[in-house]
Nucleic acid binder design. Structure first.
Lengths: 133, 133
DNA sequence: ATGATACTGATAATGGCTATCATTCCCTTT
DNA sequence: AAAGGGAATGATAGCCATTATCAGTATCAT
């Protein structure tokens, strides 16, 4: 990334001001509703550039990529398959074992992504409630 | 899945006879080159049906889904970002910690996917060799 | 100021996958 | 064996996230 333009700064600011996991369209919609005017292609390119520079990070879901702040550091994700909510966690033991596994297999790991799918507590409680009816 | 048709049987057989991680198009091409005649939609539907029935399993990569035998049981994947090769591993400690993390966060986990990205040994050795030139 | 380079934005194109729908297959029931 | 019905097939249109294209604009170095 050679230039941190107004558009890219706007994307970065929005992501940094929130704890959400944004997709490109959500970002475009939100920015364009708040005084900015950036095309969807610019958003995609900006996100790619910001991620390459380490200013933001992303998770690759089945349908689309979602971007979040990078200043929280590395973590993995719990994804509720009912409501789509994304929770975060980081477990040192898992991280360490991953390193160990890679080393044992002579694999030069550069990154990883751990997604855990399931039902979040809120959805679980709700479905438990409705079952009792 | 109500019927295990000839087409689905052919998909299943091909996957079970190999250790590859197939995408839909590769399967269709290979089958149609070997006496079968199935449309791409049938392949997609067949793969979905076979996976729902637990007869095959899949990993979701950034661009596409890849299918493999289910009789090897659960495992995670190392993906070489240079040559695309996919290696497998299973680490009980990681699996256990995942369960623990989910439990600690009151998250009712139904599944997970751990992808580790990096350079496989073969690619690493090759690039080391070319650097010495 | 000038030219080079990077970025933007509109839009076309791509690629994996799903929806549609007429046709065919296969299983049951008679 | 015939008939009826649910399921699967195959061709193809459509969907959706993302990338490519390209003309125009902004910014940097000289």
């Amino acid at each position: 990334m050679k230039r941190l333009t107004i558009q890219r700064q706007a994307i970065l600011d929005l992501i940094n001001r929130s704890n959400q996991h944004w997709d490109a369209e959500e970002l475009a919609r939100c920015l364009n509703k708040n005084g900015h005017q950036l095309g969807i292609a610019t958003v995609y390119r900006g996100l790619g550039a910001l991620e390459n520079s380490g200013l933001i990070q992303s998770i690759q879901l089945a349908d689309k990529k979602r971007y979040e702040r990078a200043d929280k550091g590395h973590h993995d994700h719990l994804i509720c398959t009912n409501c789509g909510d994304i929770e975060e966690f980081c477990d040192d033991k898992i991280e360490q074992r991953q390193q160990q596994v890679a080393q044992d297999l002579s694999f030069h790991m550069t990154g990883h992504q751990l997604l855990m799918f399931g039902i979040c507590q809120r959805c679980f409680n709700q479905s438990a409630g409705s079952e009792a009816l």
